[in-house]
Amino acid sequence: MPIDPSFAGRTYPPTEPYEVGVEKIREFAAALGDDNPAYRDRAAAAALGHPDVIAPPTFPFVLTFQASRRLIDDPDLGIDYSRVVHGEQKFAHTRPVRAGDALTVTVTLETVRSAGGHDMITSRSDVATVEGEHVATAWSTLVVRGEG
């Protein structure tokens, strides 16, 4: 069953705050094999003008991936996750995520389209602090492969 395009525009409730810890950022940077001191050392981050250790540009995916379950598990959409492939990903940063941030994610289903028997779903995840400061927006396009 193709996904009904009329669900485009649907917005899900914001996630509970995610508290960004310096050790989580260090763990993520280590997983990338990236020893950039801005990800590890407060003094190094401060020398670049950041109030605390900052996270790599793709780090918001840790939060938005969790938040996207709201959309993937939405019974109205009926997505078969075993058929999902990640097609595209984009980030726009107002500022880098940094240690000490408490962030919520608001997921919006932006577009639904079908082509070649597949559904393409683009979601937008707005990442903001609990104080309401916008930090980043992430767009994910998931391809739901058709059956047969």
Partner: peptide, 30 residues
């Protein structure tokens, strides 16, 4: 993981820029 490949590719930009916080936008297709 596509996101792992995307993150590794970003290293070319962040190492060059010195400050990774200078990356304003970053997008790829897998």
């Amino acid at each position: 993981h596509g996101m792992f490949t995307m993150a590794l590719a970003a290293r070319v930009v962040t190492d060059w820029a010195v400050d990774p916080g200078r990356v304003q936008e970053y997008g790829v297709r897998f």
